[in-house]
Computed example of a mutant assay.
Amino acid sequence: MQTIVGWHIEVEFEEVDKKTRAAALLRLPDGTELRAHGHATRHPSDPDQQRVGEELAAARVLNALARGLMEKAGAELAAVKA
């Protein structure tokens, strides 16, 4: 299989106390940049595991990017049909 195009997603994390925030940036070949944010908050009874907060925040930020891509694709299809 031949690769036609590649996408790069940057995800950065910020951790303060029991909160983990994730910010993501996706640059598409057409020049579009999609940005999204996600977060996770550790429950007081949960053990202090930084990795788990990052994974939850990352899952949420990637989900937000997916929704943004769906909206972009839908708008592009609607524009072609109009």
Score class of each variant (00 low, 15 high):
Ala22Asp: 08
Glu14Cys: 02
Ala24Pro: 02
Ile9Phe: 02
Gln49Ile: 15
Val11Gly: 01
Leu25Glu: 13
Thr20Val: 07
Val80Asn: 05
Pro47Val: 05
Lys18Thr: 15
Gly68Glu: 04
Gly6Glu: 15
Glu54Cys: 07
Glu71Tyr: 05
Ala58Tyr: 09
Glu76Trp: 03
Ala58Glu: 15
Glu76Gly: 00
His43Cys: 05
Gln49Val: 14
Asn63Leu: 07
Gln2Ala: 10
Ala79Pro: 10
Arg51Phe: 09
Asp48Ile: 06
Ala75Val: 10
Glu14Ile: 11
Asp30Gly: 01
Ala23Arg: 13
Pro29Trp: 00
Ala78Gln: 08
Asp46Thr: 09
Gly6Val: 15
Val5Arg: 09
Arg35Asn: 03
His43Tyr: 11
Asp46Leu: 04
Thr32Lys: 02
Lys81His: 10
Val16Glu: 11
Leu77Tyr: 06
Thr41Gln: 12
Arg60Lys: 05
Asp30Phe: 03
Ala82Met: 12
His39Ala: 14
Val52His: 05
Gln2Val: 12
Glu55Trp: 09
Leu62Arg: 08
Arg42Lys: 07
His37Ser: 11
Gly68Asn: 12
Asp48Glu: 07
Arg27Glu: 12
Leu25Tyr: 09
Leu25Phe: 08
Arg21Leu: 09
Gln2Ile: 15
Gln2Met: 13
Gly38Trp: 00
Ala57Leu: 04
Leu34Asp: 05
Ala58Thr: 14
His8Tyr: 06
Gly6Ile: 15
Glu54Arg: 04
Ala73Tyr: 07
Gly38Asp: 13
